[in-house]
Simulated scan of single mutants.
Amino acid sequence: MLRYLNAGESHGEGLIGIIEGLPANLFIDIDYINSELKRRQRGYGRGKRMEIERDSINILSGVRGGFTIGSPLTLYIENKDYKNWYKKMSIMDEITENIITKPRPGHGDLAGVIKYAQKDIRNILERASARETAMRVAIGAIAKLILKEFNIDICSHVTEIGGIEDKGHYSISEILNINSSLRIIDKKIEGKVIDKIDECKEKGDTLGGAFKIFAINLPIGLGSHSHWDRKLDGKLAQGLMSLQGIKVVEIGEGMNISKKLGSQVHDEIFYDNGYYRTTNNAGGIEAGISNGENIILKGYMKPIPSLKIPLKSIDMDTKKEYLAHKERADVCAVSSASIVGESILSWIIAEELIIKFGGDSIQEMKNNYTKYIKYIKKR
């Protein structure tokens, strides 16, 4: 069983991740993990926090000589901005100043302080912050290293920001080789979006958007139809919905196929030295099981709710109307969300590979996988 736990606050000392269930003898490429962290930090419209943090991974356990040894793997990312916040974020000293009592619309501030009986909204917003996704990307990078052993690729691109859509249909090669600060393939669309981001930045407003994620070269048979909580599409939808700001998840042609006839939707099956489809409206999943086609997910992200010109709110102490508390934030983070989405998809696929092919070492997993692929070719 593969699982992880992450911890840490946005302006705390750092972020921690612990992974349990990794097979032994998996090479841990530090440079690759750091390159994934850099991908998350890029993107036109990101805030000043990205100028402060230069995320890099430290491995504290579970690896020796560059390879996993079968024990829990511990990761650490330092928050460089902590030096400016250590008094506000003291672990043991009583916090009596800068108490936040004006919840921000669109955040978990109000619900969180009520649920956990807190007086200071900072106790909620620090953990609810998307800063947490830095560790999720590091964990996802390790999952990608597992997938590379099975020649499985994960990629993504942005399809819309602020209502400006890129409706192009692109090859996997084009998606894997994107050269764009916004992860938008069409350069004309990218230019329009940059203008819109600049306009919103001037006004103190924010933008949302949408992105697609792909898993390529998957075998038939990941996931299961037999239990609700083992359905692959259910796991992927929950995983992507756990990403801050995501309000809709679409699998395959999702919303479009709900408007069509069944004869126009379902992907016909053919055989030529193996099963294949000429369409992929299902997005690579049928009855909760991967069907051998590329998995395609689409995530829709709301505009960032931290605004430079804050919305109306209430002071929870006085119950008087005030403008909401302001926090430093991005104008647009859709491109970064697509990278985190890749990590979420990678983790779930890696988990399914371990469930399906087992093994205490990566070699044992690959042997089981090879036998299974031979079995598929005989069916």
Rank of each mutant, 00 (worst) to 15 (best):
D81S: 10
G43P: 08
N34P: 02
G43K: 08
K38N: 14
G45H: 00
T96L: 06
I114H: 09
V113N: 05
E53Y: 03
S71W: 12
L125T: 15
S90T: 08
Y116W: 09
D29Q: 11
D81K: 03
G47Q: 03
E94L: 12
I121A: 07
S35W: 12
K115R: 15
G65C: 07
R64V: 15
P105R: 00
D29E: 11
N25G: 07
L60T: 13
I99N: 07
L110A: 14
E132F: 03
D29S: 14
V113A: 07
N84K: 11
S56F: 13
M89V: 10
T101P: 05
F27I: 14
V137P: 00
E36N: 04
E36L: 09
I124C: 06
D109Q: 09
E36Y: 12
T133R: 01
G47Y: 00
R42P: 08
N79W: 01
E51F: 11
R136N: 12
E51V: 12
P103I: 05
L75S: 04
D93N: 12
K80T: 13
I91M: 15
R49Q: 02
I91W: 13
R122Q: 10
Y76F: 15
D120F: 03
R49T: 03
D31G: 15
G62D: 04
I69W: 01
F67A: 05
